[in-house]
């Protein structure tokens, strides 16, 4: 009984935090069903304008194409980034040496400069390669990121080295140790990495906007930006677009958060 009572403040705290977090989402959902005028009046009640908002959203914008391009970019980025960065992070930690620590430090410098400064030389590079408007040009600069490498390096620190040694004794090749031991154990880390990478790729705006010169390849954030660029902003339709654009990240998180269960039990048999 007493232990039950002790739980109350915890749930109360969680409820308050959750309420604050969900509030704006609620506003977004409700606004997607309201007229522009009602959105501006901050109406908190659902309206009946959902269909009209959908029509005005699709009247000028190809939502399907934008969702498709965003999905391709985000999925491609996430898969490649997880592979490339986790291998590197594992390498930095498991085979660490002073030189590798130094290299890690140097690589981290790359995330410390604002993108606005490197964007133009990067554009020039891809233009010289004839890769303007290509999905690869969108993805290539973001698959090896110092942040993800650091994430896997830090996670690998809690990966028991006994396992590696034992596997070596069993004659397992180095890459097999990574693939068969590390990857499955680190499922929670991969889940976290997948969420943040997908989210970053999905919301990435400045670079896709610049490298995808032809707007036939536009992504969801670009579509939303178009919505706010006119003289008359239809806030109801805008909120519907924003709602649609937010869903994939939410779904991905909801699915992957199940992986946040102890990874140890699976390996140490």
């Amino acid at each position: 009984m007493t232990s039950k009572l002790r739980e109350v403040p915890k749930y109360a705290f969680l409820s308050i935090v959750a309420l604050l977090s969900v509030g704006p989402l609620y506003f977004m959902v409700v606004s997607a069903t309201n007229t522009s005028q009602d959105v501006l009046a901050s109406s908190m009640l659902p309206g009946t304008n959902l269909l009209a908002n959908w029509q005005s959203l699709t009247e000028f914008q190809d939502v399907g194409a934008a969702m498709y391009h965003s999905t391709v970019n985000a999925v491609l980025t996430t898969v490649l980034a997880l592979v490339v960065s986790s291998i590197a992070g594992y390498g930095f930690e498991v085979y660490h040496s002073p030189n590798k620590d130094r290299l890690m430090w140097v690589l981290m410098l790359a995330m410390m400069i604002p993108f606005a400064a490197t964007m133009i030389p990067l554009f020039q590079l891809f233009a010289d390669l004839g890769m303007v408007n290509s999905a690869f040009a969108v993805v290539l600069p973001v698959i090896a990121t110092p942040l993800l490498i650091l994430l896997f390096r830090q996670s690998a620190r809690s990966f028991p080295h006994e396992i590696i040694e034992a596997a070596r004794m069993d004659g397992l090749k180095e890459f097999s140790i990574f693939w068969k031991m590390f990857v499955p154990t680190m499922r929670p880390t991969y889940a976290a990495a997948a969420v943040i990478t997908f989210m970053a790729a999905w919301n990435n705006f400045l670079w896709p906007k610049v490298i995808l010169v032809n707007s036939d390849y536009q992504t969801m954030p670009m579509l939303i930006s178009n919505f706010t660029g006119g003289y008359v902003i239809d806030y109801g339709a805008l909120m519907l677009a924003v709602l649609i654009a937010s869903l994939p990240t939410i779904v991905i998180f909801f699915v992957l958060q199940r992986s946040f269960v102890a990874g140890f039990t699976g390996v140490v048999k």
């Binding site: 590197a88 390498g91 133009i120 990067l122 590079l125 600069p141």
Partner: peptide, 23 residues
């Protein structure tokens, strides 16, 4: 140790071209 370097190589090369060259 060499294997370790090989693990780093793809990421390091990509960061070198995509980030350090523009920097």
């Amino acid at each position: 140790s060499l294997t370790g370097w090989a693990f780093l190589l793809p990421a390091a090369v990509l960061i070198g071209i995509m980030m350090f060259w523009p920097m």
